[in-house]
Design a protein around this nucleic acid. Structure first.
Lengths: 109, 109
DNA sequence: AAGCATATATAAGTAACTTAGGCATGCCAA
DNA sequence: TTGGCATGCCTAAGTTACTTATATATGCTT
């Protein structure tokens, strides 16, 4: 039962925070954007996406506002809060530190 | 309760497989080695380590044998099986693919 | 009018971890 | 000689983030 998994566990928050740090965006678009920017390598399912957004909002790292999309539909737009920006920096540093460490191990001779 | 987490979820199997691909090693030593090679960035707790070893053994990717360590103690030495080597290649490729994808997203302008 | 893409959401199940123990042995210091 | 620490193995309970499946609604196109 090898699940190919199109996501590294625990990186979703980082991916979302980074994505809306560029510009506020609604959930559906966030998923699409991550997929696109990652060159289709990362697939964000809705069952992972929406709970993650709610988590981040509850932490106070993002805030939501209903607005109308370019295509004329209601959607919930998320933006980074100030605390969210701090959190993003923290998660970026953590990712660099740990992914680098993995690199050291897997390149061990 | 921010758990700093000294591990990227899902990478432990890869780390273990890689480590014993260099040379067979007992559990305790595997944990120490990963910690050392990663420059102390990765901390493998025993509660994560031993279940992971049993998982990998059950998958047929590693095999165990009781031997005596250099310091004269009984320890369970693990080595990669042939299937384990294949699995290691697979997990290496998966890690490269996904960590690279994360890199694309977090460096998005 | 049907079907698809967009858009949000939740519930049940699973896997991998964290935390917190427990057990046994060899070695060293007091 | 015994008390403590490092070594070495192990498991159970709890948490968390995911996967899979499902539900709902709207706008556009055929």
């Amino acid at each position: 039962m090898s699940r190919p998994s199109d996501l590294i566990q625990g990186t979703l928050d980082l991916l979302i925070l980074k994505t809306i740090s560029i510009e506020p965006m609604h959930g559906w678009a966030i998923g699409k954007r991550i997929q696109q920017v990652s060159d289709e390598a990362l697939q964000i399912t809705q069952g992972a996406l929406y709970p993650a957004l709610h988590r981040l909002e509850q932490q106070g790292w993002i805030s939501a506002e209903w607005r109308v999309t370019e295509t004329g539909r209601e959607a919930k737009f998320y933006r980074l809060t100030k605390a969210g920006r701090t959190q993003l920096e923290k998660e970026l540093a953590q990712w660099e530190r740990l992914s680098n460490a993995v690199g050291l191990v897997i390149r061990m001779a």
